[in-house]
Design a protein around this nucleic acid. Structure first.
Length: 586
RNA sequence: GGGCACGUAGCUCAGUCUGGAUAGAGCGUCGGACUUCUAAUCCGACGGCCGUGGGUUCAAAUCCCAUCGUGCUCGCCA
């Protein structure tokens, strides 16, 4: 309802301003501070002061007097607070909010009939997913969720880099070394932990091995790369043996979050179908192409990019970005929009990609990047190759373990007699543990760097997943008790919800669809996390002050129950956008 | 060195794009609230030259310039 109210406010204000012969280009509509009893306000009077030649409070009063609320459903009346014009809602606003939030899909915006492909994670299949990379699936999944919830048709893609040098190195190492050559046991009983040892061994040999050995290896690696480039089936099969095995393990790990994908798109696909070479030849014909030292490159000065983009090596083979160009043209053919979630280390490459796509004649307005900063350890960077870093599996295990300890230690002091059994404890431990990890990462602005610290990531109090999840569990508890007592959230008179706590909660619920809309537009799911905290605060105040089952009369009982039902839908949907589970009890 | 980010309470962060009402949370510290729909909760206190210096503006945490600090980046790697 907030969105509808905002539209009404803008329309009413614009009408009044034009009736007064004043400009309507900047309405200055904003949410007032908490202690102001208005839902929206306008600061337009400040800007008109010099033009009109009157002090802002006078102008505000004049505007307020000029505004007509006739014909609006939610705009009740207008007054001023000094220089501000304040807009107040009708009873209908709260009534309609309560009714709308009775739907368990509340917050989902109308279908836009527009398809969006969200590419995220796309980590090279070189080994276990570490925490440094984990920001990508967690952020990416939330970005996809919020766009989905905002009414778009979303597909989630993982782009598999199976044609790069790293995979050639991996393939060579996998075929060259035996178990006996490796100096460690797998850290975990899963395929990518087993195989990454070959990759690390291979890289060590390339860095430190004797020159003859390295030379032979490089020859082999280059042969593999050439083989793929030429579409040689046998080479492809050798590489995919490694790729598919490692990837299958990584999928399992990501599945624990869970981050699921609709499609794993391999880059070799765009080599074998000829589109990469086709893109390269179109680029060669462009005005921006230059041949320097036998390598084809693009001059991107026009895009303020100093670095030239090499799109064909001197031996004629393609590079990662060349294939990615073909990949993106494929996306543009099949989807209305493409969103890619990338680490900041790929930012320059992403800008070059965009420029090159423009040169190729694409509408780059279809492409958006969500860029995030890396997650580092206090002691430095995480690297699969070097084997430094915390594995995501270990983080999730630790999170679930700590959550389980927490649940068990709280068992004795539980008031609620719902008799949690072993399965419940395990369920709650998973929901809370994994939820806490996701929430910790998704709730922060993506541009800010994160230094990973165990205690901080696994703090179960305060501004964390459990704090918000607890609200959901409380809702479920009340709804459960109510249903046993035979109270139904039907035949409700919203006007009964007249205390400040009830009204605040309802107003917070009303804002949810607007939060979804903005988060989707800006690709910033962390604003949904901020909202869940504000929501939890409003709900907890209501919980403290307004008993549902012990309310004075049945009418109040029913109305409050409807409010709890609406709250549950709101917080469940907000959490689901964040990829955090909503426990029925905890 | 060039480019791009980031710098807000002791700590972790919202707010910055789109300037506007006394800068908000949590953790920690201190003090309160469970015979009550779940205390993973709530209430209160303490805590801020919004990195620094200039500028624009009626108004700056927010925009511009400079500067310092941190991160990323500047391969015929991905």
């Amino acid at each position: 309802m907030f969105r509808a109210f905002r539209n009404e406010v803008e329309a009413a204000l614009a009408d009044a301003l034009s009736a007064m012969d004043l400009p309507t280009d900047d309405l200055g509509v904003e949410e007032p501070p908490e202690d102001v009893p208005a839902t929206l306000a306008s600061n337009v009077a400040f800007r008109l002061a010099s033009e009109v030649g009157a002090p802002p409070p006078k102008i505000a009063a004049d505007i307020a007097g000029e505004i007509s609320v006739d014909g609006y459903d939610y705009l009740d009346h207008v007054d001023t607070g000094g220089p501000y014009v304040n807009f107040h809602t009708t009873e209908q606003y709260l009534a309609d909010t309560l009714a709308a939030a009775g739907d368990d899909e509340y917050g989902r915006l109308p279908d836009k009939d527009e398809s969006v492909v969200v590419e995220h994670t796309s980590a090279n299949p070189t080994g276990p997913v570490h925490v440094g990379r984990a920001r990508n699936p967690i952020l990416g999944d939330a970005v996809a969720n919020v766009i989905d919830f905002a009414g778009y048709d979303v597909e989630r893609h993982y782009y598999v880099n199976d044609a790069g040098r790293q995979m050639a190195v991996f393939t060579w190492a996998y075929e060259t070394f035996d178990e006996a050559d490796l100096d460690s046991e797998p850290e975990r009983d899963r395929i990518e932990y087993d195989l990454v040892r070959y990759y690390r061994k291979g890289n060590r040999v390339l860095e430190e091995g004797d020159p003859e050995e390295v030379e032979a290896a490089e020859a082999e690696i280059s042969e593999i790369l050439q083989g793929i480039e030429e579409g040689d089936e046998e080479t492809y099969a050798r590489v995919e043996t490694v790729v598919d095995q490692v990837l299958s393990g990584m999928k399992e790990c990501l599945g624990r979050l869970p981050a699921e994908f609709d499609e794993f798109v391999k880059e070799t696909r765009f080599m074998f179908d000829g589109s990469t070479q086709e893109v390269a030849s179109r680029l060669k014909d462009s005005d921006y192409a230059v041949l320097e030292e036998e390598a084809w490159q693009l001059e991107l000065d026009e895009w303020d990019i100093e670095k030239k983009l090499v799109f064909l090596r001197s031996d004629g083979t393609s590079l990662y970005t060349t294939r990615d160009l073909a990949h993106h043209e494929w996306k543009f053919e099949n989807f209305d929009r493409a969103v890619t979630v990338l680490g900041e280390d790929h930012k320059l490459q992403a800008e070059q990609l965009k420029a090159a796509l423009e040169i190729l004649g694409n509408d780059v307005g279809q492409l958006d990047h969500a860029i995030y900063s890396y997650v580092n350890l206090p002691e430095g960077k995480m690297s699969t190759r070097a084997g430094t870093g915390v594995d995501l599996d270990d983080l999730l295990d630790e999170a679930v373990d700590r959550a389980r300890d927490e649940v068990e230690s709280r068992l004795d002091s539980r008031i609620r007699d719902d008799e949690l059994d072993e399965d419940d404890i395990e369920r709650i431990a998973h929901q809370v543990g994994i939820g806490a990890v996701r929430y910790d990462i998704v709730s922060k602005q993506p541009t800010k760097a994160i230094t990973f610290e165990w205690d901080q990531a696994l703090d179960f109090e305060a501004q964390s997943a459990p704090y918000v999840q607890y609200v959901h569990a409380r809702c479920c508890g009340i709804l459960d008790e109510a249903s046993q007592a035979g109270v139904e959230p039907t035949d409700v008179d919203p006007a009964v919800l007249s205390t400040e706590a009830e009204e605040d909660l309802l107003r917070t619920i009303a804002r949810f669809p607007a939060v979804v809309e903005t988060a989707a537009e800006d690709l910033e799911p962390h604003t949904v996390a901020t909202y869940t905290r504000e929501f939890a605060e409003a709900f907890n105040t209501f919980y403290r002050e307004c008993s549902v089952l012990n309310a004075d009369d049945e009418e109040t009982q029913r109305a409050r129950l409807a409010l709890v039902d609406a709250s549950r839908h709101t917080i469940a949907n907000a959490l689901s956008i964040l990829g955090v589970e909503a426990p029925d009890s905890m």
